[in-house]
Design a protein around this nucleic acid. Structure first.
Lengths: 341, 341
DNA sequence: CTGAAAGCGCTAACAA
DNA sequence: TTGTTAGCGCTTTCAG
């Protein structure tokens, strides 16, 4: 592909390859005039360095990896924007890998990083990830791993999260304040730390308000929309159905709404709904959805920023880098009828 | 990073580097036993080849690039899933680049591809792209460029699109059939071929139904939501406001809904709305949104598939690869009151 | 069937 | 200030 290389430039200029190389790196060893000659010819011939030769030599790739479960979810989409914006700024390239919530895929992907393909990774683990050896391996080799959103508690490294416990507490409290006394919590995974924190926030809020929690109010959904639909329908069809629902995962919102519609459960009168969601369309839903909005862009940006810091300073200690960026409860019609905004 | 390399393996096995290399590539030149010895040691030591050394030598990178305007849009998110699924299958890596609708960024990104960093690119151009020299340059060097969704008409290469003209025609016809006589068309760009095709479909449908088009019914929005909001508000505030709206871009939907809400224009009674959108939440909007749903996943998959075909067969002619995957009009409440589903 | 050697394009000691 | 040289780790002739 690339036709013009250092050798060619050197030939045309009657200089050595190394001189040209140094000139292009703006080394102080090289005279101004030589630099100018080199630069101008390089521009004229549209010289573009071969990144692989350079990576091979330098042992760094100017490339980072983003490993996430899915991208068809507004959180990760927005997070990617945050990541990419700082990567582009720093002149880094971004490889993207989707695990589709598959642990083995995650493992294979991370394993490949031992090759030196990337200088670091930003990741959100799959919902299946309990064994964390594959991540531990990387970390122990000094390879920078930054978790964002879905972290592994047992691995000591940089973590960018949102205040999952607190925001879930706040959401639950909000439902209680709105008069709910039987609040269901929709979850997706029993192992994900993020799910558990949200669940804990929910439980704590109920406890603090002297509301009894039943195990039956914890509803575990799956990746299968049809299954979730039936599950929720059965629950909402009961006489004593929940009067409040917290969907701890964005994609469950649609199902909840559809079930309520089918069963003619009026929202917010019969049941009030809050969702962890970054959907821009939340406010034009029927009814407008009360959300806990995560700082997706900021989290992506923060994760990338931490990574680049550690890449720039060799002694940088990732273990101390913990950022908790708060989510926002945005109250809309799905919990408070005729709510402004 | 990578500590164990060919040399190390060769040393341990008392073989030459080249023999080990061939064994790992499963060359027929190597005896079965040697292959087994090599393979087993490689596995034992967790040998992972250095991709950059290999790329440098082979002049291919097993990496492709995806260049798109944005990712916080359901179309591109889903398309990425399609692309990634086939790339992972083929053992390729995916670099992602966002142009943010910025032509100069697009140009810089593509220019870098002359370095051999990637073996091919799947792209959707920015809305600013009129000068196409940067793309032409790549193509003329035999570098595989595949367009999807937002294509450049003047460049002869593989193109994966949806039936923009026809689906827009269908949508417009649908509005006419619902009784609309003054239909506004919301567009985003005057230069994008995809926008123009959609606009042509709209115009043709109106013409075929003997409805006069006014230039005033073509509404050009921008990236600035606040601007779009005021623009639409002014239009919808008029006595003779449109009784039908086609949003040719997903992100305009929210604005349209909000304006109608604020002005108390009842949907679909006062005004009917259709949107080009892949939002999963369309059916729980207020009211449920009639959409033209693009085959985002399929388009991404098709684009990647074509690229890999051309990468696998050297004589493959990209110019002949044109795929048009149809979109679907899904009628919901925003055009037909009390519509099922 | 195996090995020696050259070289992909670049960087970085070290010399001059 | 510039040039010489030796690799980075891998693939690929070409010899043995």
């Amino acid at each position: 592909m690339a036709n013009v290389n250092l050798k060619k430039l050197a030939g045309e200029l009657n200089l050595s390859v190394s001189t040209v190389s140094k000139a292009l790196m703006n080394s102080h060893e090289i005279s101004i005039e030589t630099k100018e000659r080199v630069l101008s010819l390089a521009k004229k011939l549209n010289y573009i360095p071969n990144p692989y030769a350079s990576s091979l030599r330098r042992k760094t790739s100017k490339t980072i990896a983003v490993v996430i479960p899915e991208v068809a979810d507004s959180f990760f989409s927005i997070a990617i924007n945050g990541i990419e914006s700082v990567a582009q700024d720093k002149g880094y390239h971004v490889l993207i890998y989707l695990t589709h919530e598959n642990f083995l895929k995650e493992k294979a992907i991370l394993n490949d990083f031992q090759s030196g393909r990337v200088d670091g990774v930003l990741m959100s683990v799959t919902s299946e990830t309990v064994d964390t050896n594959h991540i531990h391996d990387l970390c122990s080799r000094g390879f920078p791993v930054i978790f964002f959103d879905r972290v592994c508690e047992d691995i000591e490294t940089a973590k960018i999260t949102t205040d999952d416990f607190e925001s879930s507490y706040k959401a639950t409290k909000h439902l209680v304040d709105c008069g709910c006394r039987k609040i269901a919590f929709l979850s997706f995974s029993k192992s994900l730390s993020i799910s558990n924190k949200r669940m804990e926030g929910y439980k704590q809020a109920l406890a603090d308000n002297k509301i009894k929690t039943t195990e039956a109010d914890l509803i575990f959904c799956t990746n299968d929309d049809a299954y979730n639909y039936t599950l929720l329908k059965n629950i909402m069809a009961q006489k004593k159905h929940p009067d409040g629902i917290i969907a701890s995962v964005e994609k469950l919102t649609t199902t909840v709404y559809l079930v309520c519609k089918e069963l003619k459960r009026a929202v917010p009168r019969d049941v009030k709904i809050v969702s962890f969601s970054n959907l821009q369309s939340a406010l034009i839903l029927n009814p407008a959805l009360t959300t806990i909005t995560q700082p997706a862009f900021e989290m992506g940006k923060a994760a990338a920023t931490v990574l680049f810091k550690s890449l720039e300073k060799s002694g940088f200690n990732l273990k101390k880098e913990k950022y908790v960026i708060p989510s926002t409860l945005v109250v809309r019609d799905s919990t408070v009828e005729g709510n402004k905004k």
